[in-house]
Amino acid sequence: HVPVVMMSGKANLADAVRATKLGAFQFLEKPLTPEGVLVALRSALEVGRTLAENKRLHEQLGHGDPLVGTSAAMDELRALIARVAPTESRVLITGESGTGKELVASAIHRQSARGAKPFVTVNSAALPRDLVESEMFGHERGAFTGATERRQGRFELADGGTLFLDEVGDLGPEAQAKLLRVLEGGVVERVGGERPFAVNVRVLAATNKDLQQAVRQGHFREDLWFRLNVLPIHILPLRERPEDIAPLVRHFAARCGARLGRPVTFDAGAVPLLAAYSWPGNVRELANIVERMAILATSELITAPDVARVLPSNGLMPVQQPGDAPWRDIALTETLDQYERELIAKALSVSRGNVAEAARRLLTDRANLYRRMRRLGIDPPRNNSSNEG
């Protein structure tokens, strides 16, 4: 990407806007000054370095990872992304913390016509309230105390590409108003600047909050919500798609193995134990747990006891027994499925992955156990045939 700086002695604001829309990094008016030219060139070089660093960090953070999962929910999510990505419409991605909202945003960007352009992320919750405008739109040198040099904002850095506003529900009222103006006009102005300029940015936003409720409570602007919620995408929590846990574990184990330079595998009882856990931190928590076990493992094979040591309640969702106080409403089917998953996981672990032996320990036949495993999303052990002879 080579930044282009244009200059003219007869141009007006319309020409400058048109030039930036066509991809010019900056538009300078004659007569030129050496200082002005140097500032423009330094800024252009800064953009190049920033984009390169952004790309490197995204690769390190795994933003190029595929959307792993075999559940119907994941199939529907991938199909929805394929339909949404080629458009220029804004997308609002919702879901609990750790479900992979940034991965979805990255996938939308990669599959769009902007895929080769910048993908810039903004953690709205981490922006200091008094610096939101500077971070988003940039500032000129001397615009405020501490502004020792000109700085480009996130909208300017994302020009031509995609801007991902993570945790957009945490923006304060003033920041919401300024964001709305940019979305409506497509024009930004640096803090301390005198000349607004157009940006060509597709905005994707994400939140773990209920923005509709926030609108009703007066915490989030309704007009901004309408602007962002053109194409809504919701990601289900991991506990509602346990069949995705096994492929996710294999994916994270392979990634950890590549980093550690040694194989990382899980035994037949380990994965069902992971599948029985409620995963309040969702996919992010699962990735962290797999990495922890891979680093601390004393052998290539991670067993059910290894899993039990790192998960609360032995990695199982607590099941409240009748008579326990206080009573809380529970979903009977889900709770029974969870308890059955626990029993099968323990039997497989004790039987070292031998399904026939696990069936004998559960006082059932092998065919019935296979049927129940399929229904619960438990993958049969890969070494099962050799174990059973």
Results as ranks from 00 to 15, higher is better:
A206L: 04
R227G: 04
F220Q: 02
L296H: 08
E156M: 01
N123Q: 12
L362S: 10
L22G: 04
L61S: 02
L228F: 07
V68S: 01
L236T: 08
L231V: 09
I330L: 06
L296C: 11
R18H: 13
T99Q: 02
A276Y: 01
G23S: 09
V191A: 00
Q321K: 12
D223E: 10
S43Y: 10
E29N: 05
E240M: 14
V120H: 12
T303S: 13
D365S: 09
I245A: 00
S299G: 11
T94R: 14
E222L: 12
S313F: 12
L316C: 06
L376Q: 12
R42D: 06
D75N: 09
A73L: 11
S43I: 08
D365W: 03
F266Q: 11
D130H: 15
L67E: 02
R190K: 15
V215F: 08
S106C: 03
A276R: 05
T70D: 10
N383G: 13
R372C: 04
R328C: 05
I81M: 02
I344N: 01
P380I: 10
R150D: 00
P272C: 05
V199P: 02
G172Q: 08
L41G: 02
R255L: 08
D210V: 04
S124V: 06
A19T: 06
E59K: 15
D337H: 15
E149H: 14
K178V: 07
R49E: 11
M317D: 02
L92A: 01
L183V: 07
S8C: 02
V201N: 03
D329S: 13
D244Q: 05
N123L: 14
K178E: 10
H251N: 07
P322M: 07
I245R: 00
P263E: 05
R360S: 08
L311H: 11
V188T: 15
G161Y: 03
D244M: 09
R56A: 13
D379A: 15
L38N: 07
V47G: 00
G218F: 10
A72T: 08
L131N: 07
K21I: 04
F25Q: 07
N208E: 11
N314R: 13
A143F: 04
G146M: 03
E342T: 08
A107P: 01
N12P: 00
R375D: 05
P242K: 06
M136L: 15
D65T: 05
E59I: 13
V120M: 11
A308H: 02
L171W: 05
T333F: 09
A205H: 06
L67R: 09
F197Q: 07
T207L: 09
A16E: 15
G115Q: 08
A107L: 03
T207A: 06
L61P: 00
R250A: 14
P381Q: 09
D166C: 05
N384G: 01
A206V: 09
P263F: 03
R216Y: 04
Q320G: 03
V168I: 12
E88Q: 14
R341Y: 06
E189T: 08
V249L: 10
R371E: 02
H1V: 06
V168H: 00
N383R: 15
L13P: 01
G315T: 14
P34D: 13
E300R: 08
A11V: 02
D65N: 08
N384E: 15
E342R: 12
A147T: 07
T335R: 10
G98E: 09
